[in-house]
Nucleic acid binder design. Structure first.
Lengths: 140, 140
DNA sequence: GCAAGCTCGTTTGCACACAAACAAGATCGA
DNA sequence: TCGATCTTGTTTGTGTGCAAACGAGCTTGC
């Protein structure tokens, strides 16, 4: 008796595919919207949707942990797209909100951001795109 | 006349979904194989498949740029899983190869790595898994 | 009313990931 | 043959990401 080494094809593994598709997506996004990154845009989008939020709350809404959202918010503050203020009620809370410049940049880039998604999915048919989105949603 | 702000649903964007699914996958991988990271495992897998490779060549085979693969190789060397040697023919080239420990760790973890892929795709049926892999492959 | 436990934000340390710029070796064409 | 060009590896700077540990503020149960 012996155990054969099982075959392992890196190129067919879900993790490797996810990494490669993400690379392509980031490259498309960066070409279309060079001013900010995908995570920064996600933060702007959620602030626009939900209004001012605590920093950690915003992190949860955008799937970033506390350490990560802090870095993202810091860079957005540095770029003048977002501002922070202490919560008068809860002494721990740091409320993050869009500045006028942030709201304007977000509004101006929505169409480009939607185009990024379309371009990323360009190799697929309409039905295939919907299928992929649906399958990925279930792996969350 | 005016232009309505188009709707932008972050949760439905391909980039955001990719990030979230990747997070879940990395978490599953890290729980199953705590010794090394996904990228390090990818490097070991390609070295096992292709034999010793130049550092940049290995980077291309695993979809990492020159700066990234250097960091990965450095950490694998530090962990004793890989070794580097100057190429006698090409004075620029740095040949990377598996050590015995690296080859052994890789062989021992293949089954676990395959299980990671299975676990990541667990919410999907067999047919859906194949469909997802196929769709993602076309977005490379 | 108060102690235990939770949440908020912060910091540090590590590991990708890419852009840009660089030095040195290899190659290929005129 | 020799100069332009390409390739190989390196470094620096910036931006995610996560784990772990921390202090300070809030809340809940008893």
């Amino acid at each position: 008796m012996h155990t054969d080494t099982p075959a392992y094809s890196l190129d067919d593994q879900i993790g490797y595919l996810l990494r490669r598709v993400t690379q392509r997506h980031l490259s498309i996004f960066n070409a279309a919207i060079p001013e900010i990154t995908t995570t920064q845009f996600a933060a702007l989008a959620k602030l626009a949707e939900l209004g001012p939020q605590g920093q950690n709350t915003l992190g949860r809404a955008t799937s970033m942990d506390a350490a990560t959202i802090k870095g993202v918010v810091d860079r957005l503050v540095r770029g003048g797209l977002v501002q922070t203020a202490p919560d008068p009620v809860d002494g721990r809370r740091l409320t993050v909100s869009l500045t006028d410049a942030g709201a304007q940049l977000y509004a101006e880039r929505i169409a480009a951001a939607l185009q990024v998604s379309t371009d990323t999915l360009a190799p697929l048919s309409e039905a295939e795109r919907a299928c992929l989105i649906q399958l990925l949603s279930r792996l969350t």
